[in-house]
Write a protein that binds this DNA or RNA. Sequence first.
DNA 1: CCCGATTCCTGTAGGC
DNA 2: TGCCTACAGGAATCGG
Length: 274
Amino acid sequence: MPELPEVETTKRGIEPFLVGATIAGVVVRNKHLRWPAQVPQALAGQPITRVGRRAKYILITTPIGTLIVHLGMSGSLRLVDAQAPVKTHDHIDLQLSSGHCLRYNDPRRFGSFHFHTSDPAEHWLLTDLGPEPLSNNFSGEHLFQQSRRRRIAVKSHIMDSKIVVGVGNIYAAEALFSAGIRPTVQACRVTRVGYDRLASQISRILARAIQVGGTTLRDFVGSDGQPGYFRQSLNVYGRAGEPCRVCASLLKGMVLGQRSTVYCPKCQKTSGWR
DNA sequence: CCCGATTCCTGTAGGC
DNA sequence: TGCCTACAGGAATCGG
């Protein structure tokens, strides 16, 4: 499931093929995504000037506007040959003048395509987002200050895209484990020191996951169709009932905020210090 | 304002 | 072997 590392992996994979290329044609086989897909035919003939990312959105910019693409839970953007046979759930193609084709496949259709004619940062999907976890705007102090009145679980706090973007269920669980913080602790009870440690673990883990092409659990493939290899580095996610890799205690699984959560009852005792 | 629950969707795993 | 159900989850939105 694409979280920030998977989206960044996709962005890096497609960028060299898109920037400088011209869109030769647009094919929308199924526009019934999370929202009706906005992919104007007017994109045909437009050069792609920039490929970017904000949170889990991939931004594909042309002189007439920017496509804002979200991969949802099961979406992928792959570069295929223009003649590649269409498979099931191949919903949208951007045909390129180079003979390549940027193909969007999404079995569960939780993804989305929006088109915005001015600065994408001003699109309603992006205006209320928190800082990028790999930027200088992100810190333990930020997490701490934003948490003072929040009684929700700290895991829900760091998964809130208004607080910080790109931290999904997998990486939230992993960062809390590495920081030694129990996911269920109220956000307002985590200490400043705890948030410092949590912020640095979030950044470190996301950066490492990007280095190995993200995490492939089931669906995710990068733009070249290759899986990511961070799965073997997971310490808690998907390991409920198995022994902790640090202390051998049995990892505990539970549901928190409608999300499956796994933690080590021994390594994750505190809400701050260790 | 705050926060938990609900909603979208389909492939897969588990139970019988 | 095959059917049926539960579950996975990003994030907007709803309801209390």
